[in-house]
């Protein structure tokens, strides 16, 4: 009953929306980054679940998940570097105080 593609996909959906909410609602830039990681992981979970339940996709799903992780690592690297650079200028990690895109 519990272990079905539906269950995994719903789980992934919930994780994704939690990440979405975090990205939309948190003020801290690093918390936003963590939310993004959560969303990426939700996607990964869905991919692996598809791989597990669709026989032709078993290895491909795992591989795509690995690629996603690699890209996520790159994203985290650059994202954190940007946050640190901004923090150094602004002395705050709070995103809603970054409004220079407005000008």
């Amino acid at each position: 009953m519990t272990q079905s593609l539906d269950a995994y996909l719903i789980l992934a959906s919930l994780l994704f929306t939690i990440g979405t909410f975090g990205f939309l609602a948190r003020r801290n830039a690093i918390a936003m980054l963590m939310s993004i990681e959560l969303m990426l992981n939700a996607v990964n979970l869905a991919i692996v679940a598809f791989g597990a339940y669709v026989p032709t996709l078993a290895e491909d799903g795992a591989l795509i998940a690995l690629f996603v992780m690699a890209v996520a690592a790159a994203e985290a690297t650059v994202g954190l570097a940007i946050i640190i650079a901004i923090y150094r200028n602004r002395r705050t990690p709070l995103v809603d105080e970054y409004a220079s895109m407005r000008e």
Partner: peptide
């Protein structure tokens, strides 16, 4: 939370 958190919650 950001002041738009309620909107984010609705969206989520």
């Amino acid at each position: 939370f950001h002041h738009q958190a309620w909107a984010g919650a609705i969206a989520a």
